[in-house]
Write a protein that binds this DNA or RNA. Structure first.
Length: 449
RNA sequence: GUGGAUGUAGCUCAGCUGGUAGAGCCCCGGAUUGUGACUCCGGUGGUCGCAGGUUCAAAACCUGUCAUCCACCCCA
């Protein structure tokens, strides 16, 4: 294929069959957000570059699509919804009902190398609450996620949580200098991937000692004996340890606060999702982006498909202040629509095959004479909410039209020929069972309903 | 941005140490002029990702480039 007829790197075309599933996933998410009382908003796909890049770190900044408009304004495409939300809130704060619970579903753009599950243009579905410091917000968002994933049929997944305040405490207790915190966290985040030796290597490269690493790991070694320790137990062990180890009072206070926050989230999580309490897992090695998170952070990943996390979020209490609004608590969660679809299709390869057309019936009339009757019938069905497609060929062959309907996965075909039109009836054929029956037009609606 | 693998028909792929392309599925037509998934027959479709180079001759070898996948980086 010539390069001129390919979609640009990291983007793709969606075929009609793919769109059916895509639409269903997006609609499901939208409905769930609405059921929880979030209101929908929209904001521009591009913003001033300076606004997007504010406090996002150079790593992320490199991923922003930047361009100049004709008046030389420097603009960028949104790479997620959080910074646009900060701006949106700051510009409209006086008009918004607080706490402001909003959702937004749309395309975002990241200039990064592509891979399976990583695109340059993709959909995110984002729900945030601004205006509360309560941990009830985190609980609500996690509950929303569980509810939504259930509706989507996502099956086996786990919600991993941690807290920036705790991480800061452990870093301090491990004797790692504040200036080296980011490097340390970045290395620690990769533990599962590169192993102990890899992390130590990265530590040394960044001027952090192996001793620091050992200390850190000793503090977060929370499994007593062989038995699997539950979240609450882990948190309480960690809490005692940090109280004992931390010398700096303010650091200690913050770390303890962080632990209490997670305990509260996990506790209400257990109540809300009772049987599934196991899906929430405290992991002191979860770090996430180094940008604006200030409190609890979480990530949701599939246990069946290795595609990275498909949803993530956390608290970023400094966000709206960054854009000039009065300080407010803020916390949000974002779903990666493509990744969710990838997981659904990989787990169940034939969902794409099994999706059926939103069109219920295909109407074929054989000669021009039956046309008025056919159109009238179609119109009645549509006005009653039954989707009906009508054949546009001027010389239809029944075989071809049935084949067409079958390929489009339409359930029924109505055939109107001379015989039928004479009695104001039509032949209704079920394409799956191949059954046919002669029906009066007015009985059609009852039958299809 | 770095390293590796791959790129042949709409799809999945074959094509030997260089001699300008094949199969299956799909699609179209017919057997079957008011009935689709099976069967049979026939047919369309490819400047071998793109651009250079080596050669009498390149899908194959070399270089560049674009895209996809994988590992980094980072992340939905």
């Amino acid at each position: 294929m010539s390069k001129l007829v390919q979609p640009p790197k990291g983007t793709k075309d969606f075929l009609p069959e793919e769109m059916i599933l895509r639409r269903r996933v997006i609609e499901t998410i939208r409905e769930c957000f609405a059921l929880y009382g979030f209101v929908e908003i929209d904001s521009p796909v591009f913003e001033y570059f300076e606004l997007l890049s504010r406090k996002c770190g150079s790593e992320v900044e490199k991923e922003i699509y930047v361009f100049e408009d004709k008046a030389k304004r420097k603009l960028g495409l949104r790479f997620e919804f959080t910074s646009p939300l900060g701006r949106y809130y700051a510009t409209n704060a006086e008009k918004l009902t607080k706490p402001f619970k909003r959702y937004i579903i749309g395309k975002v753009y990241r200039y990064e190398n592509t891979q399976a599950g990583r695109y340059r243009e993709f959909y995110q579905a984002d729900a945030d609450i601004i205006g509360s410091y309560s941990m009830n917000v985190e609980s609500e968002l996690i509950d929303l996620a569980v509810f939504t994933l259930e509706k989507l049929g996502m099956g086996n997944y786990e919600i991993v949580i941690n807290n920036r305040k705790i991480l800061d405490g452990i870093i301090n207790a491990a004797g790692i200098d504040e200036s080296k915190k980011d490097a340390a966290l970045r290395a620690l985040d990769k533990t599962a991937k590169i192993g102990e030796a890899g992390v130590i290597k990265e530590f040394l490269e960044n001027g952090i000692t192996e001793e620091n690493y050992r200390l850190f790991m000793r503090i977060i070694d929370l499994d007593s004996g062989n038995e699997r320790t539950d979240n609450a137990k882990k948190l309480s062990i960690l809490k005692e340890r940090l109280i004992r180890e931390l010398k700096d009072e303010s650091v200690k206070q913050r770390a303890v606060e962080g632990i209490d926050e997670l305990s509260s989230i996990i506790e209400s999580g257990r109540k809300a999702v009772a049987a599934d309490a196991e899906i929430i897992k405290f992991d002191p090695l979860l770090v996430r982006g180094l940008g604006y998170y200030t409190g609890p952070i979480f990530e949701i990943k599939s246990k069946d498909v290795a595609i990275g996390s498909f949803a993530a979020g956390g608290r970023y209490d400094n966000l709206v202040e960054l854009y000039g609004a009065r300080p407010e608590g803020a916390c949000g969660i974002s779903f990666g629509v493509e990744r969710i679809i990838d997981i659904i299709t990989q787990k169940n390869a034939d969902v794409l095959q099994s999706v059926s057309s939103p069109v219920k019936i295909y109407i074929v009339y054989l000669t021009g004479k039956e046309k008025p009757f056919a159109y009238k019938t179609a119109k009645i069905l549509r006005s009653k909410g039954i989707s009906a497609e009508i054949c546009v060929s001027s010389e239809p062959s029944i075989g071809k039209e049935i084949k067409y309907a079958d390929k489009k996965k339409i359930e029924y075909v109505a055939i109107i020929g001379e015989r039928e039109a004479a009695e104001q009836k039509l032949t209704l054929k079920n394409l799956k069972t191949r059954e046919e029956r002669l029906l009066a037009a007015e009985d059609l609606f009852e039958f299809l309903r």
